[in-house]
Simulated scan of single mutants.
Amino acid sequence: MYSDTAHAGTPTSTAPSAPTWDPQQYLRHAGHRTRPFLDLLARIPELPTSPARIADLGCGPGNVTELLTTRWSEAVITGFDLSPEMLQRATEQYAGPTAGGGSLDFRHGDIAGWLPEEPYDLIVSNAALQWVPSHPGSFGAWINGLRPGGTFAFQIPGNFTAPSHALLAQLCDAPRWRSRLAGHGARYIHLLEPAEYLARFTELGCTADVWETTYHQLLHGPDPVLDWVKGTALRPVLTALGDDREAVDAFLTEYRDLLRAAYPSGPRGTVFPFRRIFAVARKEA
Rank of each mutant, 00 (worst) to 15 (best):
Y2D: 13
S3N: 05
S13G: 07
T14N: 13
T14C: 12
A15Q: 14
S17G: 07
S17H: 09
P19H: 10
D22M: 01
H32A: 15
H32F: 14
D39S: 02
D39M: 10
L40I: 09
L41F: 11
L41P: 06
E46A: 15
S50G: 10
P51L: 10
P51Q: 02
A52N: 07
D56M: 04
P61N: 09
N63V: 07
V64Y: 07
T69V: 13
T69A: 15
T69H: 00
R71W: 07
V76Q: 14
T78C: 14
F80K: 08
D81S: 11
E85C: 07
M86H: 11
Q88R: 14
R89E: 14
T91A: 10
A95T: 01
A95M: 01
A99V: 12
S103I: 05
L104C: 13
E118P: 05
E118S: 05
Y120M: 09
A128D: 06
L129V: 10
Q130N: 07
G137R: 06
S138H: 08
P148Y: 02
P157W: 03
P157T: 12
A162T: 04
A166R: 13
A166W: 00
Q170I: 12
L171G: 05
A174T: 05
A174L: 00
W177V: 07
S179K: 15
A182S: 15
G183A: 11
H184L: 03
G185M: 05
H190S: 04
E203D: 15
C206R: 00
E212K: 10
H216M: 11
P222M: 01
D223H: 02
W228C: 10
V229T: 14
T232V: 15
L234Q: 12
A240W: 03
A247P: 01
A250H: 06
L252R: 03
Y255K: 01
R256A: 08
L258Y: 04
L259W: 02
R260L: 02
Y263C: 04
S265G: 01
S265C: 13
R268S: 15
G269A: 05
R275N: 12
A281T: 00
E284P: 01
A285Y: 02
